[in-house]
Design a protein around this nucleic acid. Structure first.
Length: 521
RNA sequence: GUCCCCAUCGUCUAGAGGCCUAGGACACCAGCCUUUCACGUUGGUAACACGGGUUCGAAUCCCGUUGGGGACGCCA
C-alpha cells in the first residue's frame, strides 16, 4: 500500500489533506462555484483518479542566471528524496525565459552541480524557453474564456501608478483599468499585455504541506500580467503551464515563492486545472541570519566541491537543515530516501553552519573508499603542482587508511599527503623547523644508525622504535617527534611507524640524514 | 508602506498538554586515551523571545507585542 502522502502534521489541522475526499483536490475559492468532481469540460472529471494514487512527480526549477547555490541544491535534494521515497519521478526544468540573464554556461554548471550531488533528474531537462508557444496558447485560451483581458497600459503609466500608490500609502497594485474597458478604445499602435482577471472578492487559500493553510484576501492581489506585450509569458504563468503539462503532483520549492502561489493558484483555478500539492521549504540564511551570499563563504555547490567536501556529506548536511528524524544525524542517501517526508520539514529558516558541515564531512571521509580518496587527493596534488611519480602515488595510496583518519576535507587530506607524494626531504613548516634543536638533530643521527638495520615492516618498525626508546631511557615521543619532523616536515602526521614504512628505507634514511647532526661529544 | 511566513542552547534540531529537572548533534571548556595530530570517550557551560489568556496542568493551544525573513515588476 502506498504510504499516505501529506498527512496533516500539526494538531488542530486534522483532515487538512484527507486521504479520501476531494476537498483539497477542488478547493473552494472565491473565483468559482465549481463543486467537487464536476466536469467543467476543462480536463478533469468526476471519476478522475484519486490524486493520492497517482505517481508522484516533482521538479526542481532553477533559472540559469548563475551558479547553483546551496539553497537550490537543498530544494533539488528535497524534491529528489520525496519522489524517490514515493517511487515517483524527479524532473528538472530550466527556467530560461529571461533571455538577457540566462546563459549556457550557467545551464551547464547547474547540470554539473546536480550530477556531482547525485541529483540528476530522471528525465531529460525541460527548457522553459522552448515552450513559449504553449504558454501563449494558454494565455489566449484564458482570454477567450473571459478569465483574462487585454491591457494597453504603457510602462510609464504603470510606473506612475505605482509611485502614486506608494505616495498615498497604498500597496502598489494594478488598478485594473482595462479590466472592463473595450479593447477597441485603445490608442492605436499600442501592443497589449494579457492580464488575468483575478477574483476581487473572497480569498485564495493555499494548503501547503509544510506551512499549513495559508490564506490571503483577493483584494490584496491585483490582475497580474500573464503574457507580455511582446508575446512572451511571465514567470508566474509559465510555471503553472509547465507544471501542469509536466504532470507535476508536488511543487516543492523555496519559501520565497509562497506568496506567488496565491496568484498561481488563480491561474490553475481559471483554467480549471487541478492544483498540485505545494510544499514551501524555508530558506537557508548565512551564519549571521541574513540572506546567504558570497561574503558568507562558499555558496556555490561547485565551491564546496573545490574546498574538498564530499557530495554525500553536503547532501546529508543540507538534509538536516530543516528536516529531522529524531536524533539521527548521519543519514546517507538510502536512509534519507527511506525516511524523508514533507511532514518532517521544519517551518523556520535555518543558518548555514560550516563547522557542522565540516564535521560531517570528516565522518564521511573516514568511511569513504580508499581508492576513491586516493584518486581525489592525487588530482589535488597534481593541481597544486606537488610533483609525484608512480612511487609518490603508491605511497599516498598505502598511507590513505591512516591519512583519512585525521582529515575533514579533501583539501586537508591532500595537504597531509603531500609529504608522501614528493621525493627528497620535505619543506619544513616553521614550527617544525623550530623543533629541530641540536639535541633533536643528534638524536636523529644516532637513530639513523639504529634504524638502518631495522626490518622494514610496519609492525617491526614500531617495536624497533619502542626498543630504542627503552634502551636509551627516553619516552617514545622524544624519538617520534624529531623523526616526524625529518620525515614529514610537520609536527602532525599519521603514526610514525606508518610514515617510515610507507616512505621506504632509502627515502626515509635520506630525509633523516638530511637534518641529522651527530653531536660533538 | 501592504500582505504572507517564522520564533527551543551560539548553530542545526528533538518535542503532537502531564513522559521536560527540556533530549541529541556541531562548536566551546575540562578530563581520559595517546608516538604527534586527529578519532574515540567521560563530564561541563548553554535555550523554550516577551506579555496576556485557555487548562487541574503549556515549550506545546489562542491572542497581542517584539524580533527575524519573504513577497509586492511587461525579473525568475
Amino acid at each position: 500500500m502506498r504510504p499516505a502522502i501529506g498527512q496533516a502534521k500539526r494538531k488542530g489541522e486534522p483532515g487538512l489533506f484527507p486521504a479520501i475526499g476531494n476537498a483539497f483536490l477542488h478547493p473552494s475559492h472565491a473565483c468559482g462555484s465549481r463543486g467537487a468532481g464536476l466536469d467543467l469540460g476543462t480536463g478533469f472529471t468526476a471519476d478522475a483518479p484519486d490524486r493520492l494514487e497517482m505517481t508522484v512527480r516533482t521538479r526542481f526549477a532553477p533559472s540559469p542566471t548563475g551558479f547553483l547555490h546551496i539553497g537550490g541544491a537543498r530544494t533539488a535534494l528535497f524534491n529528489a528524496l520525496f519522489a524517490r521515497h514515493h517511487g515517483g519521478a524527479y524532473l528538472l526544468r530550466i527556467e530560461d525565459t529571461d533571455r538577457a540573464r540566462s546563459t549556457q554556461e550557467a545551464v551547464q554548471q547547474i547540470l554539473d552541480s546536480l550530477e556531482w550531488l547525485g541529483l540528476s533528474p530522471d528525465e531529460p531537462p525541460v527548457f522553459q524557453s522552448r515552450r513559449e508557444a504553449r504558454h501563449a496558447e494558454v494565455a489566449r485560451e484564458l482570454l477567450a474564456r473571459g478569465h483574462a483581458y487585454l491591457a494597453f497600459d504603457t510602462p510609464e503609466e504603470l510606473v506612475a501608478m505605482r509611485e502614486r500608490a506608494m505616495r498615498e500609502g497604498r500597496p502598489p497594485r494594478y488598478d485594473g483599468g482595462w479590466r472592463d474597458r473595450d479593447p477597441a478604445s485603445a490608442p492605436p499602435g499600442l501592443k497589449p499585455a494579457i492580464r488575468l482577471k483575478a477574483p476581487r472578492e473572497g480569498e485564495t487559500v493555499v494548503k501547503d504541506l509544510v506551512q499549513g493553510e495559508v490564506r490571503v484576501g483577493n483584494a490584496e492581489l491585483d490582475d497580474m500580467i500573464i503574457l507580455r506585450s511582446d508575446g512572451t509569458p511571465t514567470y508566474l504563468h509559465a510555471v503553472v503551464v509547465d507544471d501542469h503539462d509536466m504532470a507535476i503532483t508536488h511543487v516543492i520549492r523555496g519559501d520565497d515563492h509562497l506568496t506567488n502561489t496565491f496568484r498561481q493558484c488563480q491561474i490553475y483555478d481559471a483554467m480549471g486545472w487541478r492544483r498540485p500539492y505545494f510544499a514551501h521549504i524555508p530558506l537557508i540564511h548565512g551564519p549571521d541570519g541574513a540572506k546567504l551570499s558570497k561574503r558568507h563563504g562558499a555558496v556555490s555547490v561547485l565551491e564546496f566541491r573545490e574546498q574538498g567536501f564530499l557530495p554525500e556529506a553536503v547532501c546529508n548536511y543540507l538534509l538536516r537543515l530543516g528536516w529531522g528524524h529524531g536524533d539521527e544525524e548521519f543519514v546517507p542517501r538510502e536512509r534519507a530516501i527511506e525516511l524523508f517526508d514533507l511532514k518532517d520539514v521544519g517551518r523556520s529558516a535555518s543558518r548555514m553552519d560550516y563547522a557542522k558541515l565540516t564535521h560531517l564531512n570528516g565522518q564521511y571521509l573516514r568511511q569513504a573508499d580508499d581508492a576513491r580518496l586516493t584518486q581525489e587527493v592525487l588530482e589535488r596534488l597534481t593541481r597544486r603542482g606537488v610533483l609525484f611519480g608512480t612511487r609518490g602515488a603508491e605511497r599516498v595510496e598505502r598511507l590513505m587508511p591512516d591519512l583519512k583518519e585525521r582529515a575533514k576535507t579533501l583539501e586537508e587530506l591532500a595537504g597531509s599527503a603531500a609529504f608522501a607524494a614528493t621525493e627528497g626531504p620535505p619543506m619544513l613548516e616553521p614550527k617544525a623547523a623550530a623543533a629541530l634543536t641540536p639535541e633533536a638533530r643528534a638524536r636523529l643521527a644516532d637513530l639513523a644508525q639504529f634504524l638502518n638495520n631495522a626490518p622494514w615492516e610496519r609492525a617491526d618498525l614500531e617495536s624497533w622504535l619502542r626498543d630504542y626508546a627503552e634502551v636509551k631511557g627516553i619516552k617514545l615521543g622524544q624519538v617520534a617527534q624529531p623523526l616526524r619532523v625529518a620525515l614529514t616536515g610537520s609536527l602532525q602526521s599519521p603514526p610514525i611507524d606508518a610514515v617510515l614504512w610507507v616512505l621506504g628505507r632509502t627515502e626515509a634514511m635520506d630525509r633523516i640524514l638530511a637534518v641529522a647532526e651527530p653531536s660533538e661529544a
